[in-house]
Structure formats: structure tokens, C-alpha cells
Design a protein around this nucleic acid. Structure first.
Lengths: 131, 131
DNA sequence: CTTGACCCTATAGTCGATAGAGGGTGCAGC
DNA sequence: GCTGCACCCTCTATCGACTATAGGGTCAAG
């Protein structure tokens, strides 16, 4: 494998073609050289970088955080404190989201349990939604 | 209380003024009568309806689901099965989201634990993000 | 009569893509 | 050579649920 078309890169990273072009437009993925017919030609470095991006996205980092992580990962001499701090902050965020959703789920279960059938007029669900 | 200004309604429902106007624009909240000076004047019914909307939003329903719930809540003679089904489906959704986030959190904890300090070059975090 | 808090409309921006229009490229088979 | 098809190109618009900004008008207190 020497060069990849955008479609091949998309297939290799489980990303949509339009998404790759989008990443290029916002400067997350460098614009690759083009073929005679103006097709994008990607190399291993693009593949690596895109995999990194997708992995970070799958972990819930925002594109801005990914951008930061990419920059940090390039400065190999730098202290890794900043990287760890980004990961930790994101973990806290995810844990807060889980806690919030668990409260929601509990409430929804309570509301669901209040249903005894019958008409909407008799049903307690609508009531439960109008406190 | 006979009539509420948009600001008063916002304060009473912990909603932003712009959000109320937005709900009106998308047809979720009926356009209220206006004062001589073209100010919106809200009544109890608007307050009730907006509270319902906000409560549903706080429970994570989309605005389209809220729209549906509002319609259903008006048909008091209807069987409440549809309402219960909406709530249950949403609960399943929330539970799935929790499960997803828990996987993320576990992964992030694993990645975080792999950090032993030092430079970015030595740090395992970046590695862990480039599988 | 001025100040300041509130209200009005209209438009554009956020995030992370996704969709569609309207066209060009490259290759296989006939 | 020619046709068909999959793939590629750019550009613009759309999604959800708001948020922000510009450029005004209204109203009550001092």
C-alpha cells in the first residue's frame, strides 16, 4: 500500500468520506497531495493521524480536545502532565454525565411505573410530567 | 398574576428569554397576545405548557418527542399506551447511553492509570490513544 | 427628560457531522 | 472508441437546541 484514495482511507478507519473532507476543512487532517485527476492521495501518516482522531472521538473527546491532543502528541519532549490532565478532566466529565443520566433513568422508571393503563386523562404519566 | 412578560415567564420557568421565543418560532409554544407596545403577554396556560416542556427537556426528551407528548396530553380520551411507550423507549435510550458512557469511563480510567509521568514521548497515554 | 432595564426583530453562529446538487475521473467490458 | 458505473470533486444547506449579536423600540422611576 503506497497511497490511499479517500474512499480507501474511509474504509480503513470506519469513517465517512465526507467526514474526512470535513476534518481537512477544519484543519484537523492535513490536506494530502492530489493525483493528476485531482483526487486526494493519502499515505500512512494520514492513516495514523486519522485513526488517532477517530479513537479520541470514540472516547468522547471534542474535536478541539483532539486538536490539542494531536499537538501535544507531537511534542515528544514535553512533560506529559498536560495530556494526563486532559484525559482526567474528560473522565470527570463522563462520570458527571453518567450520574446525570442515572438520575434521569430513575425518574423515568418512576414515571413509567405510575402508568396503570386507561385513557390519557386517567394516566399518571402526563401528571408526572407536569409538576 | 394576570399576565406575564416574557422575562417574568422566563424567571418562573428557569428558561432563557431567547429560548421562549425560539419555542414560539418552532410552534411549540403558542404565540401569545401582545401589549400596546408589542410586548408578549403570557397567561397561566402558557406557564403550564412551558413548565411541561421544560420538565420533558430536563428528562432528556427531544423537542419532537415533547411535541408529541403535548399533543397526546391534549387528547384526554385516548388510550395512554402511546404515552407510556414514548417514556419506555426513552428510558431504554437513556440506559443505553449510560452503558456506553460507562465503557468510555472504564477505558479512560485505564488510559489514565497507564501514565507514569515523564515526557510525552515516554507517556503511555498517547500510545493508548493510537491503537 | 433622561437613564436603565426590559422588550422587539432579524441574522448568524455553535458542534460534528450529514445530505444533495451538479459535475469530473478512471476503469472494465463490449 | 464508447458506454456504464463506481468513485471522486466542490459548494451549499441542513440537523438539534439553542446562543449571540446588531440595531432598534418601550416603559417606569427619579
Amino acid at each position: 500500500m503506497k497511497e490511499l484514495s479517500i474512499g480507501a482511507l474511509a474504509a480503513a478507519t470506519d469513517t465517512k468520506v465526507v467526514t474526512i473532507r470535513y476534518y481537512e476543512k477544519i484543519g484537523l487532517l492535513p490536506a494530502p497531495p492530489r493525483s493528476a485527476g485531482n483526487y486526494r492521495l493519502y499515505r500512512q501518516s494520514h492513516l495514523d493521524r486519522l485513526r488517532f482522531i477517530r479513537r479520541c472521538r470514540a472516547l468522547g473527546f471534542t474535536l478541539e480536545e483532539v486538536r490539542e491532543l494531536l499537538e501535544l502528541s507531537a511534542e515528544t519532549e514535553r512533560d506529559c502532565g498536560k495530556v494526563d490532565q486532559l484525559v482526567s478532566a474528560h473522565l470527570v466529565d463522563v462520570q458527571r454525565k453518567i450520574a446525570d443520566l442515572e438520575k434521569l433513568a430513575a425518574e423515568l422508571r418512576r414515571i413509567h411505573a405510575s402508568c396503570r393503563g386507561g385513557t390519557v386523562g386517567e394516566c399518571r404519566i402526563i401528571e408526572a410530567l407536569s409538576p
